[in-house]
Nucleic acid binder design. Sequence first.
DNA 1: TTCCTTATTAGGAAAAATTACTATATGCTA
DNA 2: TAGCATATAGTAATTTTTCCTAATAAGGAA
Lengths: 150, 150
Amino acid sequence: MLLTLTEPADVQMRLDYFETRCKELGLRVTRQRQEIFRAVAQSDKHPSAEAVFLQVRESMPNVSLDTVYRTLSSLEEMGLLMRVGLSSKARFDGDLRPHCHFVCTQCGEVYDIFPQENEQIACPLPARNIGEIKQINIQFKGICKNCRPQ
Amino acid sequence: MLLTLTEPADVQMRLDYFETRCKELGLRVTRQRQEIFRAVAQSDKHPSAEAVFLQVRESMPNVSLDTVYRTLSSLEEMGLLMRVGLSSKARFDGDLRPHCHFVCTQCGEVYDIFPQENEQIACPLPARNIGEIKQINIQFKGICKNCRPQ
DNA sequence: TTCCTTATTAGGAAAAATTACTATATGCTA
DNA sequence: TAGCATATAGTAATTTTTCCTAATAAGGAA
């Protein structure tokens, strides 16, 4: 299985697509949602909620932090942006054998996935140019069988 | 590049190794550190700091939450356990093209890594049995060139 | 366009998660 | 075993995220 998501690079096109998606889902196209989506779509800095809040506040001084958090979460659910890593609290793993994690977005449960005998976890070459890699972390997010049987 | 870390499965062996590592690094072998390490090493539940705190408190009723947080972080630095995902606050990415992230553990900066033309991001087969995968998240942790030039 | 309905928001408060502080305790070296 | 420096408990503070409610505004109907 490969990742196949692609998205128009142009921000305006993505804003249009965002509106379409909102209407499909029966969500109102509010200025707050637009600006918050734009702030993330325009940035290549992987901004935090706080950073998005500060950015959006430039054009909407009264926007609330709650709205930013709420909107970021719903945009994530809509598949219009992604959260880097896990949300909320930290989880720890004492098993250092190479393996991946499946994280259920419903119940929060973390499952280990040990690769098959002949499977390899490969590291893209460009990573070496950015710095010294000390750890690899591979996560799959989705709904586990307990939460959605069958 | 492949992940090559392996660790003795037996908890007692790992505790011994933990002591050795502490001594190598000039860290004191305190009961708190032992119990906190044991709690994570024994568990297959990817416990949170809170969960570790509750577990350790069974045998050490006066252990403090601060000690748990501090110790988990230092155990991570020592390479004796790993943190699932990122620490602290959430970061968002509006670019949905398949790519990985390099996270600098020093400055917190997040760098994009786009795979080479012929590279593939593969998903271990067993993942399919756990649930429906909606997203793949690959992170590399380390020190970026800005923080440790050359 | 204007009105209505209901989803959404602002603002503030609260909760949850993590970190900082300091006096005390304790591991380790000699 | 004594002394010293590190580590801890207990608490407070900070940071991050979520909750609550009255007010607002989007989108559909008239």
